[in-house]
């Protein structure tokens, strides 16, 4: 249930990003909402389900973006594992840490994509614009807190529904026959 809902949510965000948000004026930027979802999964979801989700998101991105299969799953997985490792030493899910985390993670992903392309596809180039990169980091930093709040509520809702479904097997006071 959790995986399905978050996968569908990822697909919806990606569709919005490629259609509605893609028509926004370039100076306003096109917020990478799916990236925020990847970040949320990396920070809030347990390792097993988190890996499955980031792989699914990576596959989705592979379909919609670029032309190098495997690029996004690898980069998102790298980001996921890095944040997991960092969370052992630093508190990453504090609200005050989320905006810089979002910006730094995007920079990490951009660098990882550049490295991946350089190492595995030497003949190909990617667009690298510091202006666009900084604009996207700024947008993600602004959106990090509200999006984490909304996604947290969605995740809590799913969890409570699941608890209700599984806890309705026996109702009332089980000590009274």
């Amino acid at each position: 249930m959790f995986l399905t809902v978050l996968s569908i949510l990822g697909a919806c965000l990606l569709i919005a990003q490629t259609t509605v948000l893609a028509r926004m004026p370039p100076w306003l930027g096109n917020p990478d909402l799916l990236f925020l979802l990847v970040l949320f999964v990396a920070v809030k979801v347990d390792t097993f389900r988190g890996i499955i989700l980031v792989m699914i998101y990576g596959l989705m991105m592979d379909i919609f973006s670029g032309f190098v299969p495997g690029l996004y799953p690898a980069v998102y997985l790298g980001l996921f594992l890095t944040i997991r490792y960092a969370s052992r030493h630093v508190i990453v899910d504090e609200p005050v840490h989320l905006p810089p985390l979002a910006a730094a993670s995007y920079l990490f992903c951009s660098g990882a994509i550049f490295l991946y392309m350089t190492i595995f596809n030497p003949g190909t180039d990617i667009l690298w614009s510091w202006r666009d990169l900084l604009l996207q980091m700024f947008i993600l930093a602004i959106l990090a807190l509200p999006s984490f709040h909304v996604l947290g509520r969605i995740a809590a809702r799913i969890a409570s529904n699941r608890r209700r479904i599984f806890s309705t097997a026996k109702g009332g006071n089980r000590f009274i026959s």
């Binding site: 990003q17 259609t19 948000l21 893609a22 990478d32 919609f64 990617i126 667009l127």
Partner: peptide, 8 residues
């Protein structure tokens, strides 16, 4: 649909 990323 358009490419959602900045790199392609």
């Amino acid at each position: 649909g358009r490419d959602p990323s900045e790199w392609f």
